[in-house]
């Protein structure tokens, strides 16, 4: 297996990157390449031009911000996981990173690439949505910052063909907040058969103030489940209420894919189970933070 021919460029600026992406025929961004390179090798994907971000400055830093931490798009998942700014507490993000691919993939895959990789089993977008992260994007005119939920809510990532993710900002969790990510991996590919990222905010009294529940592995990369979220608000955070809320999942009418690893109805069942488990762990963590 050998990739079909393509051209390659590694420009030294964002402006040049965007210009090459806009002008090249069938041009694609190349970050860590952990999704793209094997797809090119099997010729499932083709490209006329690959624009490599490796020479673009300032994309590989993890910087503290007032409201959280900003992670440059070219920071590898291994570096994110090793960062004390990230791993100080257990969150949906640390859960996701620990279960992402394998060590070699984490050493090479970038957070920008993992967010932009449009494969239904890639779960980082769901975590970004659950954590209410914002994504900085650079395009033809200038940069913009959008909420993760805006970028990943649809069937395809709402990223322009000549746009590049430059960083992701993860907010500091509010007091009483906790998050978790639950994944059942495909034993072959290690992608998620199904994953659920949940974040929860407890009131000082211990009831649920708000929650986000996001499913990975359904038709879109990251699907929020508003009916489950709504059913949680104002409830005591007990196993019973979590389970009852998860029972609203079918009301959303989500469709799940069917493949050799799992049929759709099993994925739907799994999503419900994982919602309860993710919420329970998020609640435990929220209580730890508050106590």
């Amino acid at each position: 297996m050998i990739p079909a021919k393509f051209d390659y460029a590694a420009p030294a600026s964002l402006a040049e990157t965007v210009s090459q992406l806009a002008n090249g025929a069938d041009a694609h961004v190349l970050a860590g390449g952990q999704g793209l390179v094997p797809a090119l090798t099997t010729r499932e994907a083709t490209a006329g031009l690959l624009v490599d971000l490796r020479n673009v400055p300032d994309l590989a830093d993890i910087l503290p911000q007032d409201s959280g931490v900003r992670i440059g798009a070219m920071v590898t998942l291994d570096e994110v996981a090793a960062s004390t700014q990230i791993n100080g507490s257990e969150t949906a993000l640390t859960d996701c990173l620990a279960a992402f691919g394998d060590p070699q993939v984490r050493n090479r895959a970038t957070i920008g690439g993992a967010l932009a990789h449009t494969h239904h089993g890639v779960d980082l977008p769901a975590v970004a949505v659950a954590l209410d992260a914002s994504i900085s994007v650079f395009g033809a005119d200038a940069g913009r910052t959008v909420a993760a939920s805006e970028l990943f809510g649809g069937l395809v990532t709402a990223l322009g063909p000549a746009e590049v993710i430059t960083s992701v900002s993860v907010p500091v969790p509010a007091s009483g907040a906790g998050s978790a990510y639950e994944k059942v991996r495909n034993p072959g590919s290690s992608y998620a058969i199904c994953g659920v990222a949940a974040s929860i905010v407890l009131t000082p009294e211990g009831t649920i103030d708000s929650a986000r529940v996001v499913v990975a592995g359904a038709t879109a990369a990251a699907v929020r489940i508003p009916k489950v979220e709504a059913a949680l608000a104002g409830q005591p955070a007990t196993q019973e209420t979590l389970a009852a809320a998860a029972g609203h999942l079918p009301d959303e009418g989500l469709t799940f894919p069917s493949d050799l690893a799992a049929p759709a109805d099993y994925r739907a069942h799994l999503a419900e189970v994982l919602i309860i488990r993710a919420l329970a762990r998020a609640t435990d963590r929220a209580r730890k933070v508050s106590s």
Binding site: Y8, A10, L30, G33, Q34, V37, P38, T41, L50, D52, R54, D78, P103, Q104, V105, N107, R108
Partner: peptide, 14 residues
């Protein structure tokens, strides 16, 4: 760092 060298283009290792 350990990487799988079939998932990296030679050019990326420049």
């Amino acid at each position: 760092k350990a990487v799988k060298s079939c998932m990296v283009l030679a050019a990326q290792a420049d």
